[in-house]
Structures are given as C-alpha cells and as structure tokens.
C-alpha cells in the first residue's frame, strides 16, 4: 500500500470524490489559488478548475450558510474552515441551520454538507485559534462529528462523510498533517462512520481516545509495556457521533479499568459523556473509578513550553494511566 501523509490522504479523498460526483465542490478561504493555508488542497484547482475549487472572502457565516443552502438543493459542498476555531463566527449557520433544518422540516429537507478543517492546540497559536469543538458540535442531534487520527482513517472517513446525507463535521489536526501512514488508493475503500478502531490490544487498562491523543496514548502504552509490564488497549473512537460504544464496552469488559484521554477542556467533554455511558452500562465490570486526562482547564496558553504541559502528552498519559491502575 502507498505510504502518504495525512494531508495527502485528505487531498486524495477530496480529489476522488470531486471526480466521482459532479455535485461535490470544495470551498473556503485560500483553498484554490493559494493551495490552502495548510496545503491540503494543493493541485486541486489545477486539476478541477475554479467551478469546483472556490476561494471565498473571509466571510464564514456567509459562505458556510451558503453551503448549507446549496446542500438543500442537492449540492455536496465541502467547506474548509482555515481553523475550526473560526466556526464561532458561523455558529448560527452550523448549529441552528445545518443541524436543525431536517428536523424542523419534518424530514423534508436534507443537508449533505461537510465542514472540515483543523481543530487542535499544540502550535502556540493562542486561545482564539486552539479550540477543539467536537463536544460542542456533538451536543447537537442531527450532526455527525469525525476526528481522524491517522492518514488511512482520514481518507476513508472523509469519503464516507462526503457521501453521507447528513451534515458532517470533520476535525483535522495541523500537527498530524505531516504524519505518514499506509493508505489504500482504492477509490471505493470507505471507512463507515461510527466504527471505532482498536489501535492496540491490551488486557490491563483501556484507554479510550481519538485524534492526536491516539498517538500520545500509543506512545505511553509502549512505555508502560516496556518499563512497567502493563498491557494497555487503545481504542480510537474515530467518530464522536455516531459513537461506537459497543467497541468501548467490549474493551472495558476485557480490562475492567478505563482512562479517557482527550484534547478537550474537561467540562462536559466527550470524556464526560463516555464516563457516564460506561458507568451506566458496565458498572459491575469496573475495578476502579473511570479516569480522565484532558487539557488543563484554562484558555489555551501561548507560551510554547507551557502549552505542551497544558495539553495531553505522552508523559501526562503515562502518569494518568498509572493512577488509573493504582
């Protein structure tokens, strides 16, 4: 299988779907002539032309809302947010219009839009540019939320999202764009939304995680095995909503101890929801309380070495895992 970067995997998914379906368009700030702020869409304008790859002004509420409207008439817009952090200026379009239009029309109207872009901290861009809104988004019934950790997942999941008939919010990561992995070039290889992936088998502790924290958790798991003789299972959710709780449950039944790791502010996070579900569905399986490692509860700090400490990192995961096993 070809080894490509996460960035190239997203680009490949876009290219394949744009080629496959004439209703798919990519739109966003700097996506065409500038090739994307993070070069995800490099070469697509040259390949597909300006009707399919469209540069927008800095008007997120306008162009995202326009995408929602166009999707109601059968266009399949893939809207790039340069950063998911800018979703706040388009909040009404995303969470009032896209999330609710199907329900409020009694199922008469579909909204097959994809909104994608990076949502992460760790690059010292400060509080306004480091939001991780997967919990906020997933709080809205009617939407789907996807946070891929690897190149292969990014490609397979984005293709599913583009073909999906509901609004899909796809959260990438600027730090992962350069990460490489084996990715199939089969244009029909899709990864269904709502299927978690066990990224590492283990028997002593389940780490439930997603996004870049999968990499931190795998790094910590390797150290735990080598230095502490502890066997950790790492469950990558891949999609937040729909949530593959069966895979989580199966792992909890196997290890009886759980740590949730997430790059989220702790209050009402994805981890909060998981902890609730696990205690409700598997209370008797647990040998100890459910632990969680999240971002330290404050706006994102700029200072580069301190931001590393604010976010989950392999050392913090290691400590949290040992605490969960104590």
């Amino acid at each position: 299988m070809p080894v490509i970067t996460y960035r190239e995997a997203i680009r490949a998914a876009l290219a394949e779907e744009i080629a496959r379906d004439e209703n798919v368009v990519l739109m966003g700030e700097e996506v065409a002539q500038f090739h994307g702020a993070y070069k995800v869409s490099e070469g697509l304008l040259e390949k597909f032309g300006p009707d399919r790859i469209v540069d927008t002004p800095i008007s997120e509420a306008g162009f995202i809302g326009m995408g929602v409207g166009a999707s109601m008439l059968g266009i399949r817009p893939v809207m790039e947010l340069m950063f998911w952090s800018f979703y706040s200026v388009a909040f009404d379009q995303i969470l009032n219009n896209a999330a609710n239009v199907r329900y409020m029309s009694g199922g008469l109207i579909n909204c097959p839009i994809v909104i994608r872009g990076p949502a992460n901290g760790g690059t010292n861009v400060g509080a306004t540019h480091s939001h991780t809104p997967e919990n906020v988004l997933a709080n809205h019934p009617g939407v789907k939320v996807i946070v891929p950790a690897t190149a292969a997942d990014a490609k397979g999941l984005l293709k599913s999202a583009i073909r999906d008939n509901d609004p899909c919010f796809f959260l990438e990561n600027t730090i992962l764009y350069g990460e490489k992995g084996e990715v199939s070039d089969d244009p029909e290889l899709l990864i269904p939304l709502g299927v978690a992936d066990v990224k590492r088998q283990g028997s002593d502790l389940t780490i439930v995680t997603y996004g870049r924290c999968v990499l931190h958790s795998l790094a910590a798991a390797a150290i735990l095995e080598k230095e502490h003789d502890i066997s950790v299972e790492v469950v990558d959710l891949r999609t937040i909503r729909p949530l593959d709780f069966d895979t989580v449950l199966a792992s909890v039944k196997k290890t009886h101890r759980v740590l949730v790791v997430e790059e989220q502010k702790p209050f009402a996070s994805v981890g909060s929801q998981l902890a609730y579900l696990i205690q409700r569905e598997a209370f008797d399986e647990l040998d100890g309380p459910i632990h969680r490692l999240a971002t330290i509860d404050a706006p994102a700090i700029y200072s580069p070495p301190v931001e590393v400490e604010q976010l989950p990192n392999p050392q913090r995961v290691l400590k949290a895992a040992l605490a969960a096993l104590a």
Binding site: N124, V125, G126, A127, T128, I301, Y302, S303, V306
Partner: peptide
C-alpha cells in the same frame, strides 16, 4: 505574561 503571544 506569555499567555497571548504575538497576536494578543
């Protein structure tokens, strides 16, 4: 205090 950075 190192919290805002260049933009802030």
């Amino acid at each position: 205090k190192g919290k805002g950075g260049s933009m802030h």
